[in-house]
Design a protein around this nucleic acid. Sequence first.
DNA 1: ACGTGGCTGTACCTCCCGGTACAACACGGA
DNA 2: TCCGTGTTGTACCGGGAGGTACAGCCACGT
Lengths: 202, 202
Amino acid sequence: MTAHTTQGDETRRRILVAAADLFHKQGVVATSPDQIIEASGTGKGQFYHYFRNKEGLVHEVLLAHLDAIRDGSGSLNYEITSWKDLEQWFEAQVGLQKRYRMTRGCPFGTIGNEVTENDELIRQDLNLIFEVAKAKLASFFVREKAAGRLVANVREDQLADFCLATIQGAMLMGKVKRSSQLVESVVHEAMSHVRRYAQTTT
Amino acid sequence: MTAHTTQGDETRRRILVAAADLFHKQGVVATSPDQIIEASGTGKGQFYHYFRNKEGLVHEVLLAHLDAIRDGSGSLNYEITSWKDLEQWFEAQVGLQKRYRMTRGCPFGTIGNEVTENDELIRQDLNLIFEVAKAKLASFFVREKAAGRLVANVREDQLADFCLATIQGAMLMGKVKRSSQLVESVVHEAMSHVRRYAQTTT
DNA sequence: ACGTGGCTGTACCTCCCGGTACAACACGGA
DNA sequence: TCCGTGTTGTACCGGGAGGTACAGCCACGT
């Protein structure tokens, strides 16, 4: 299951990266082990040596995503310390989508939408990812409120969920429309809404 | 392709209904013709008699959805004439999701997320659906603005996109979390944002 | 040097996917 | 009545999905 050699570690990593990319591009169901094997330049032997099966691989891809959010090693910065940061967090997602010429949505959303009642494990992984992301965003709002810069009756986690949900929906619609303008304007509305809770209590 | 007999019309309809349900439940890619055939109680003969292939069926399912939005024959009412209507439109989506015990997302969103660069036709169908839905919502805002009950500098279609995007994101996250509370609160935030553009100019 | 792991490649297997071919049937009109 | 068109069932097919078996390899400690 896990690698015991630097070389083995490398191939394992290559499989993970190739899989993550293909899942993002065309979804989990539409991606076959053979495709991942070819894209990663490995063989069937390695694939089933390092991963129990396809579902196991999906699980580990999601864990990798989770780590990326947790330690900030991914291309997105979830450590929000200012309103500017929050705005950049939104913009960064649009930017990422633009690099793929608006042909892709959010990596998590893409997988999340494919989840059925038989994928309980995967669903929980995704749930955890959203939970961690929410906590990161919410902690910013908590600090702002503590500093008296946020109206007192606002629910911080609810606001964080709002941010996540809007960006998910915006990216999905941006992908369908193949247009970044839609995403930009939705993000703009969302930011404008969240900002209204900010107050300058002198 | 198209039926010429009331009986043939019936089987064609049964296939469409069964397909729509399965696509909503588990997505397009994960649904095989055989499953649709079994669920609709028909045979392979009928399937390929009435539809060119699987993609053709997806296309027609989407056209049926589109009609449902256009003439209001679906379970959702897109004819918004009051703020109460708008709120009910949001709530109706959550209600629908709840009936499936939060195991499904939006029918369009589910399909939209599966779209790749090879599904240009399907993508355009979905785009049209979103476009029509947006127009329905936007026309309400236009009327409100004309009546002076909306701030003058608001872009009506942008606001409509915002509504669509948030409900999409909310339903996706609701499905992943298997919780309707998340959806309710996101919808609440969205409504609260949109309502701020309303003004009573005496 | 040699065994004992981890690593890697390839052959193979079963099942189902999307689809075709084709024969039988129903039934209204000439 | 008998033909033609719309409808329905079933047999079949190539290919790829997801996965297993297994044999070679290479490095390492001893």
